[in-house]
């Protein structure tokens, strides 16, 4: 998959920064169908593996949700570039998630986000986190957007 947005462009959009940035690249943007796909390469260098868990590195489910939420911001920025360009605050309203399988070191985590309803002040999206085309986690996310 080809990189459409590199890390520099991603950092312009996402307010989250290292070590809380969980998107490495954006590989698909389809504004017409309100969907994007992003990648997080999971490596042993990810700081959370030091504690989660020693000898058994598994990506925390909460951080998979965070990665999905960050991919949702990317989608918002694609659909509402003028608002995203003003660097608003993004916040989570509700998350309903299911975890299907663990995400481990070496996995290429693909975060697919499909917009259900995206408005100026927030949105509802369906997100899938996949590894090798298999679903590792899925969620419905409600988020808000507030100008600074």
């Amino acid at each position: 998959m080809e990189t459409i947005w590199d890390i520099n462009k991603i950092q312009e959009i996402l307010p989250q920064k290292y070590p809380f940035l969980f998107i490495d690249s954006v590989v698909r943007i389809d504004a017409k169908n309100k969907s994007v796909a992003c990648v997080k390469n999971v490596t042993i260098n990810d700081y959370f593996f030091a504690g989660h868990f020693p000898g058994n590195p598994v990506m925390p489910g909460a951080l998979i949700i965070e990665a999905m939420a960050q991919a949702s911001i990317i989608l918002f920025a694609v659909l509402k570039p003028d608002i995203a360009g003003k660097r608003p605050d993004y916040y989570l309203g509700k998350v309903e998630a299911k975890f299907r399988q663990p995400v481990r070191v070496g996995d290429r985590l693909i975060l697919e986000v499909q917009g259900e309803k995206v408005m100026d002040k927030g949105g509802i999206v369906k997100a899938l986190a996949k590894v090798n085309d298999e679903i590792a986690a899925e969620a419905q996310i409600v988020f808000g957007v507030k100008p600074k």
């Binding site: 309203g93 509700k94 259900e116 309803k117 408005m119 100026d120 002040k121 927030g122 949105g123 509802i124 409600v142 988020f143 808000g144």
Partner: peptide
């Protein structure tokens, strides 16, 4: 506002309408 968004999205889906923002 987050619940309101959910209500709007659910109504739109159920009744196939678009509620202007």
């Amino acid at each position: 506002s987050m619940m309101a968004l959910e209500i709007v999205a659910s109504i739109e889906k159920k009744y196939k309408v678009v509620i202007p923002e």
